[in-house]
Nucleic acid binder design. Structure first.
Lengths: 319, 319
DNA sequence: TCTAATTACATAACTGGTTATGCAAATATA
DNA sequence: TATATTTGCATAACCAGTTATGTAATTAGA
């Protein structure tokens, strides 16, 4: 068994924990027998709460011990059948089921305290024999996972790894079809293609590059999965417009938008631009949030050839 | 939740482990989704084994991953339904169900490897953030519990604590009824009371004390629960006989036999005895093993007034 | 060599939890 | 103040494992 987990690595942490848990719960049953306590180990958390604070409702107990409410309902039912608790006590709120220990339950809990002392001592001995403190380790991991779940941590690792496979390159003629297709994909999903779209997407060289603009392509494992254009503007207020940003849905979650955006900002600076402009639609939540992350701020309306534009943003470059 | 476990103490280690386990397995489901792997997390151990060694029987897999055989049977059934494994492959032994990954299963396992790397990295990061190493702690506790189970450890604590409530005192007239009752209890359970029994048990003063012997009584919480006599012998080979040892079944597991035996040995020395003798019956396994623990060795037969005696032992005192 | 014991596995039933759901009581709101 | 929403809890159904049990195939033994 040990060797199995050595082979699997940390991926099997859940499995390994489950097995260790099983050892404890199996032994718990025997330990209760040893002390001649007619208790089911699973009653322990509920019993413990009722020893501490005499009267409690089902939901209160569930919250305190971290179980679901139906779990506590079941446990209380079993304990009531064993004569350890009195439930459905009269209370102002008739929905609640107020529970407290019966006489028998109190007597039993006195005997339980003796057992608790021995178990505590046994675990303490175990802890002193071990170099690694399991109890403290659990507490610490609970804290760390509260702060950031394993899912989020894995997701971050995934993005990190995948972004290493993403390269941002300058536009070449061979990417023209990808440039058009990627844009057409999202535009026609949310809106409809307009005349201005066709002009730029069909003739990027004439309409973007030759006029002093740039286009960047994001390659994931050498396949184009994202594009973005930097278009020279003929406007006293702005030097360049960031436009035609598109990322394939298949390549989502790889930070590609962020990498393209950064490439655009860097290129603007290299070309001596001071202010970057963009148009978008508030329907595109992830895009808007990306623009904010890149430092863009909303600006007041301005004439636009696109029907779908309902928000305009700018980024003032400080160097 | 944390505060709940702070209050309960180590007794709730099982509960706490179960909850931490739940966090991992819940997140595992989401992680598989993130990688677009149509796998159930519970398949992982089986899948892992099949990636390592192509062909395996159900029982082999169960042993390697530490699950029960029916658990593996169920998992294989599910994986077969999902088209990941081919089961019931032809084999010499027709009882066995030989299983291997299908083409689809192999493709999926390739994708799984990518995920494994990310999870490993995420857990590694977690470990580096933590002061206590959970993975190592689990491995160590598994080892320590293999060596001595929690049940045994708790039992030892219990005996230790209870033996503190046991006092060995010298016989007084008020213990005569206990002396008789405790002996009568076990003798009549396994054998029948003999004439020699009644003589000694009814008149301990005349037959034991007045002849230079001693009787010790073990009190548990001031109740007599064990007795043992040291009887002066009229024999060139032996000075004293240890006899009439009896411990109440209710007080078993408190080391009382051992404590009484030690009291007898100590008294023999104080009285200047060099050799201690006893008679017993091999039916009484725990008693014989106690005598061995006290240092008694078997000796060859010798005349005895007791029909039930079928083993004789002696202890030579060295000081 | 024939029978008895063992082995491999499928199935059923149980365990200690969970989520989903519905109903009655209490509270909030128009 | 009537209605909508929320709350507390019981019940049902599910989940990932377990133990118990029955059956067919194999192996051991008299």
């Amino acid at each position: 068994m040990k060797s199995f987990f050595d082979k699997t690595g940390k991926m099997a942490l859940g499995s390994r924990l489950r097995m260790l848990t099983a050892r404890f719960t199996d032994d718990a049953t025997e330990i209760y027998k040893l002390y001649d306590l007619p208790l089911s180990p699973k009653w322990f958390p509920v019993l413990f709460i009722l020893i501490e604070d005499t009267e409690k409702t089902i939901t209160e107990i569930a919250e305190e011990i971290g179980h679901s409410q139906p779990s506590v309902t079941k446990i209380i039912k079993e304990m009531a059948a064993a004569g350890l608790v009195a439930s459905n006590l009269k209370s102002a709120d008739k929905r609640t089921n107020v529970v407290k220990l019966s006489e028998k339950g109190q007597q039993l809990s006195e005997k339980l305290k003796v057992q608790l002392v021995d178990v505590e001592a046994a675990v303490e001995t175990l802890t002193s024999e071990a170099r690694h403190n399991l109890w403290e380790a659990i507490a610490e991991w609970e804290f760390l996972l509260d702060h950031k779940s394993l899912l989020r941590r894995v997701n971050e690792e995934k993005k990190l790894r995948e972004s290493k496979d993403v390269r941002i390159v300058e536009y070449e003629a061979k990417y023209q079809s990808a440039f058009k297709a990627l844009n057409e994909e999202w535009i026609s999903t949310y809106f409809t293609m307009e005349a201005a779209d066709y002009k730029a997407l069909d003739n990027p060289k004439t309409y973007i590059l030759d006029r002093g603009g740039k286009i960047f392509v994001a390659l994931y494992k050498d396949e184009p999965v994202g594009v973005c254009a930097l278009i020279k503007m003929d406007d006293p207020d702005y030097d360049f417009e960031m436009a035609k940003m598109a990322v394939s849905p298949k390549a989502q979650g790889k930070n590609i938008g962020w990498l393209l955006g950064n490439a655009i900002v860097k290129a603007t600076k290299e070309l001596g631009g001071k202010k970057l402009y963009l148009e978008s639609n508030t329907l595109l939540k992830p895009a808007i949030s990306l623009y904010h992350k890149l430092g863009f701020k909303k600006v007041v309306s301005r004439a636009t050839p696109y029907a779908r534009a309902n928000i305009q943003m700018e980024l003032v470059l400080d160097n």
